[in-house]
Amino acid sequence: MMKLLIVDDSNVIRSRIDNIYAKSYEIEVVGKAVNGRQAVAMLKDLEPDIVTMDLTMPEMDGIASIKRFMELQPSVKILVVSALSDKATGIKALSKGARGFLCKPFTDEELTTALQKLIDAKNRE
């Protein structure tokens, strides 16, 4: 079972992702954070395997959070889930350590496909 941490300032997005995996045998949602600062604080206790990370958030944005996650737990696999769809932002996120980028809006299937790539990468370690 892969432990998933959801980081997004939108309660609707957090609830939606939580609902998608509520009955999953492969992914367990272990935490939900409303911004990067809260997510970093949760990281040590939760030790997630995979993370969905928004970029535009108050207090600590996604790019700063990815950098901090990589310092604290380099093995974590991060999927950026953001509306920011320009190439430069995608490259910046990946260069900081994110493993994938899913542009909002997304379907349940698109999210599952993107997370499966992270799970496959985790399983190869």
């Binding site: 300032d9 939108s10 609707v12 997005i13 535009t56 958030m57 108050p58 953001s82 509306a83 920011l84 769809s85 320009d86 190439k87 430069a88 932002t89 542009c103 909002k104 809006p105």
Partner: peptide, 25 residues
Amino acid sequence: LAGEIANTISGNARSDFGEKFHISV
């Protein structure tokens, strides 16, 4: 949800207008 819709529509516009199209929370 209203905020998320406005955020998504604006954020997606960066694929056309580039990273200097800054959007707020």
